[in-house]
Amino acid sequence: MTQQTWTMEARRQPVVLAGGSQRVRDLVARACASAGVAPVFVPGLDEGLALNPVVLLVGPEQAAGGTTGQRDVIVVGMTEDENSVWGTAANLASSRVVILPQGAGWLAEYLGRRLGSATSGSVVGFLGAAGGCGVSTFAYWCARQIAGAGKSTVLVDGHPLNGGLDLALGIEDRPGVRWHDLSDIRGTLNPEQLASALPSDGRLSVLSHAARAGTVGGGPGGAMPSSGAVVDAARGAFDVTVIDLGNGPAARFLGAVCDHVVLLVPSRPRSVAAAGGVLRARNSVPMTVVLRGPVQEGLDAWLVADLMGRPGPLPFLPFVRGARQAEAAGRMVSFVVPRSVRKVVRSVTSAIELLE
């Protein structure tokens, strides 16, 4: 089959396959043809990442490393290479594996849906440079703002071991599916079915882990085997998917499918240093950095922006009295957000929408 080769002049590509045998390349080319897209084949990860693809396919022989922050990474290989395929996926920012030839139909369907702009919503991750800085609360405020502006929105809980975001919101008794109900999904999930099955708070849907102990599932690092299929379905069902990524190992898997990341940085020297590492690790994904108050040791929104090489001043989220207590008591839905906070929430959500 005719294959496209990489050149220095190439611009961003929709699908790139790094490595893989000739048989894998032929099957990938056929799947891409079914999806109406032309793949680019390159010998290794470095060349693939240089093209900044929307979807990066990786052969099982590729060494781990260098893909942190890549939005979609799928490891592909033949049936006889299945063990090495799963081993490579475990070492990359990937929760998806395709075994060929039987998985070729799924790959064609996925690429067609993922690259079809008419049915592809945005996925925005919220991440903290340090634990306990209020990421869940801020993600909820932003998701509520987006939903209030008329966009269909789902808030996704990325903390498998944190007791359930629905408990913090106070909607744990509302009927609807949670992550553990989706743990057995293999292949694809119907977007309309997902949307109709989720509990909601007004126009905002919520996908939470279970509030009850003993119902958490997951694979390596707490990642659900179905995570990729669930986020794919969310893209198709909602205009915006907001993921509270958390700080645990599971954030690696969900963070890999985000189109944009909002990084909340407490105004403390160690947190600012940690944020610099996050920016370097996720440099292939657009990122909005928000400074979290109270300001300490002179680290204001201008100075932190300068230290991180960002244009200043950074959006500043002030300390909100009572917010932590409201989250702990399951009163986030009814908590009255101060005007100063509503202003920064509008600023951040506007920036996200402009970058879609």
Rank of each mutant, 00 (worst) to 15 (best):
E297T: 05
G48L: 08
V28K: 00
S196E: 14
G236F: 06
V230F: 00
V295G: 06
Y110R: 02
G298T: 14
G330L: 11
P199Q: 10
T137L: 09
S196V: 14
P199D: 04
T119K: 09
T119D: 01
G66H: 13
A33L: 10
D259Q: 11
G248V: 08
G170K: 12
G48A: 02
P294S: 12
V16D: 10
I146K: 04
K343E: 10
G255Q: 07
A104E: 15
G312Q: 01
R11C: 01
S196Y: 07
A64L: 10
A143G: 14
C142D: 08
I99Y: 04
N247S: 03
L92Y: 06
E356I: 05
D244M: 06
L194H: 04
T119F: 05
A143V: 05
G121C: 00
D184H: 11
L127I: 02
P60M: 12
L115N: 08
D157E: 09
G148E: 08
L194T: 07
S122A: 14
L155Y: 00
P338K: 14
F319M: 13
S347Q: 14
R186T: 06
W86F: 15
D300R: 01
V304G: 09
G132M: 13
G222R: 07
V278C: 00
V135M: 12
A29G: 06
P269S: 08
L155C: 10
G219H: 10
D26P: 01
D232R: 03
G103F: 06
A328N: 15
L45G: 12
C142L: 06
P313W: 03
S136D: 11
P60N: 12
R71E: 11
E61T: 03
L182S: 11
G219V: 04
P294M: 12
W6M: 09
V278L: 15
R280I: 12
G163P: 14
L207H: 01
G222T: 09
R114K: 15
S334L: 01
N83H: 14
V24R: 04
T88E: 13
A351Y: 00
P249Q: 12
G255S: 12
L45Y: 02
Q193V: 02
V73I: 10
L303Y: 07
V295I: 15
K151P: 02
N83L: 15
P191D: 13
V124Y: 05
R346F: 01
L167I: 15
L111F: 09
V341H: 03
V240Q: 00
L263Q: 05
L303C: 01
Q325R: 13
G255N: 05
Q22D: 14
L111H: 06
T67Q: 10
G65A: 12
I99T: 15
A328M: 15
G236Y: 04
P14L: 04
T215L: 14
G217D: 02
V261T: 09
H159Q: 07
Y140L: 08
V40A: 01
T67D: 15
P249H: 08
H209W: 12
G214V: 04
A210P: 01
L354V: 11
L161H: 03
F319P: 05
P318D: 14
R144Y: 07
P43S: 13
L254Y: 03
P286R: 07
Q70D: 08
E327P: 03
A18Q: 10
A281G: 08
C142W: 02
N91G: 04
P175T: 13
T137E: 09
A281H: 04
A149V: 06
G134N: 06
D184M: 07
R342C: 10
G134M: 05
F335A: 04
